[in-house]
Amino acid sequence: MIDVKNLHKTFEDNHVLRGVDYHINPGEKIVVIGPSGSGKSTFLRCLNLLETPTSGEIYLEGELITDPNVNLNKVRQKMGMVFQHFNLFNNLTILDNITLAPVKLKLMSKDEAAEKAFSLLDRVGLRDKADAYPSSLSGGQKQRIAIVRALAMNPKVMLFDEPTSALDPEMVGEVLEVMKELAEAGMTMVVVTHEMGFAREVGTKVLFMDEGTIVEENTPDAFFGDPKSPRLKDFLSKVL
């Protein structure tokens, strides 16, 4: 579904991604872990081209999306993204946050979008917040809305960039719960996180990134039970 070939990304003189190759199959839940500065967030942001790769190729369903002539907006409609800091639109109600993109991009009528929004809000238990503004919501509620907002576009794949890192500890669970349900429903997911429990439980593959490359990649059991590289062993000894 997603093919990444020899991906490089340089910020000024900081070489963040030094040749990443990976293949993601439909329905997979890829969990990316690694120390801060390892390039894992940059890797995720390159997938939907929020960062423009310096070199390398990314294919989405066979289409070369790193081609400068590709319509980025169309590509991004197929990839939902959830941010660490939620990034709900502060000027819009929850309902408008969810329906803005589908309506403005003429994918749905206003009524269809609202219907879809309410059914998604039911799934995350936040129907009563439809007319509220983001500033009145807790962090956990905001992140659940952010997930709903991305899902309203009917994406092929969902990207999560440290979705629980900015949350108070008591709110982490409610967000992970929504992500688990999404995984069970068969969504293809790429998740950058520090939640090792989530990686173990939900991931089909776990990647360890360090210094701009994928150092190790395995099924959760093998990844956590039998780490191969010394750097991963070192990392796991610190976080577990």
């Binding site: 939907n48 590509v75 709900l88 000027n91 907002r149």
Partner: peptide, 30 residues
């Protein structure tokens, strides 16, 4: 206006102009 607002708009497939129009400028007005 927080850059995250723009990123969120763009990540949903809205164009630069649409993101400006519906998300950034309404907040900038305040």
């Amino acid at each position: 206006v927080d850059h995250g607002q723009t990123e969120a708009g763009r990540s949903l497939g809205l164009s630069q102009a649409q993101t400006m129009m519906y998300i950034v400028i309404p907040q900038a007005i305040k």
